[in-house]
Amino acid sequence: MSAETHDQYNAGEYVLRLLDPAEEAAFERAMRADPSLQSEVATWLRGLEHLNISFSEESVRRSVKTQLMERLFQERSVRAAFWSRLWVWRGITLTALILAAVIGYRSFPGPATPPGSAVFISEIVAEDESLRLLAAYDPSVGGLRITRTAGSAPPGRVLELWAIVGDAAPVSLGLLPSSAKTTLPLPEAFRRATGLILAVSEEPPGGSPTGAPTGAVLAIGEAVDL
């Protein structure tokens, strides 16, 4: 880029976006080679910043943020964390059998259970095992009986339980109380173990403001039939 070309456009024109795309590209090439042009651009931006008061504030629909957070974080937070924790699953079947006695779902009504409402269980565990919950679906109440056996919410945060099936967005099942045991209603769509993942995230008091996990996903577990 010759000095002549530098003179052709100035940084003010570039900052104001007066130039056409080809000229903008040419200026950017020149700027890459010439640090003084970069300084000039920053100087123009600071010089013009007083005009920013002329941009009024406009209220934004809540769903815009929800969608943004989903686009940015959903896949990486829940699914990536999930796939990276495959090793947790290996122990699940055995653990599930052991837990059978602990939670006592053997006493769930057997013959009275409606068809398609099999008992299933999930062990939701943090990678470092600092948080551990057992969740068992109880068809007699249509809910998950949850027992927290290790860990708790970080200070000032609450634990929120999520259900994930396939590629669909996580659905909140509710907040976990500070008590170790609770029962949360389980929507019809999640009353089968096949492909069901349960996850616990930490959220601000009152739960995720967006409808999707916003805090760290602390623990994750696969549902398995008993």
Binding site: M31, P35, S39, E49
Partner: peptide
């Protein structure tokens, strides 16, 4: 552009001076 802006900026002191003078525009 956002990237290049970060390459070469004024020192924090220069920035403070520049900000206090922004009303000049």
């Amino acid at each position: 552009m956002a990237e290049r802006l970060s390459d070469k900026g004024p020192s924090p002191e220069q920035a403070v001076v520049a900000r206090s003078e922004a009303g000049r525009i």
